[in-house]
Computed example of a mutant assay.
Amino acid sequence: MSTSPVQPVLYLVVCAAPPARQIDEFIKLMMDDGWIVCVIATPTAATWIDRKIIAEQTGYPVRCEFRRPDDVDPLPKADAVVVAPATFNTINKWATGISDNLALGILNEALGLGLPILASPYAKSTLTQHPAYARHVELLTGAGVTFTHSEAIRPHTNDQPFLWHLIQRALEEILRPPVPG
């Protein structure tokens, strides 16, 4: 009797930045690549996305609120985490260990679990020049988070879609086993 391989689970943490409005495109890309995708949205991002459509697309509810202690978690355990778009606010709070919303709580726990984490910042250059930002990216990188460059998914022109394939490729890179040397 053969058993089919278990699909890996991706927690996709979505923050409130323009790419969030087309997050369904990234979800489709990852699902086509064999991932089960579970979306966790920051409180503001939850108002920017169509939670019902994303739940239908993924088969899982979009989580944005803490569950009660006696509630069963409706999501399977994650194998990897992607934060896209990752806002200036979320990156700075995450680096300081703040868990004042579910998305940050998930990110802080993922660090503690040692899960592979990819963050794709989407922040204005005026914000990324803030001295706290560089320190916080460095701190999170030291804790094992891999970052794309800021606004890596921004299209070259406004009439093009976001460059979600760059995040997909970056995730493949961090999940690739090291070549024995």
Rank of each mutant, 00 (worst) to 15 (best):
Y11N: 06
Q22H: 13
V137L: 07
L171H: 00
V37M: 06
A20N: 07
A55M: 03
V72W: 14
Q160K: 13
A78H: 00
S150N: 14
T87Q: 01
P19H: 02
K52G: 12
A46C: 09
Y11E: 08
Q160N: 11
F66G: 09
T128M: 04
H130E: 09
Q7P: 10
Q22N: 12
R169K: 12
E172Y: 00
L175W: 00
L175C: 00
T148I: 06
N108A: 11
S2D: 10
E109R: 15
Q7F: 12
E172P: 01
V72M: 14
A119M: 03
T47H: 09
N101V: 02
L139I: 11
Q57P: 09
F147D: 06
P131G: 08
S99Y: 08
T87N: 05
R176A: 07
P43T: 01
Q129T: 15
P18I: 04
I91L: 09
D50Y: 08
D32N: 14
R176D: 03
F66Q: 13
L127E: 12
E65Y: 08
G59H: 05
R68P: 09
I27C: 04
E173Q: 11
T58K: 03
F88A: 10
A78P: 01
A20G: 02
E138N: 13
I98S: 08
C64Y: 13
L75W: 05
A95I: 04
P19K: 03
A16N: 04
L115G: 04
H149N: 11
I53A: 15
A45Q: 05
L107T: 00
A55Y: 03
T87D: 02
I54Y: 08
L29I: 10
A16P: 01
A80D: 00
Q22R: 13
A123P: 05
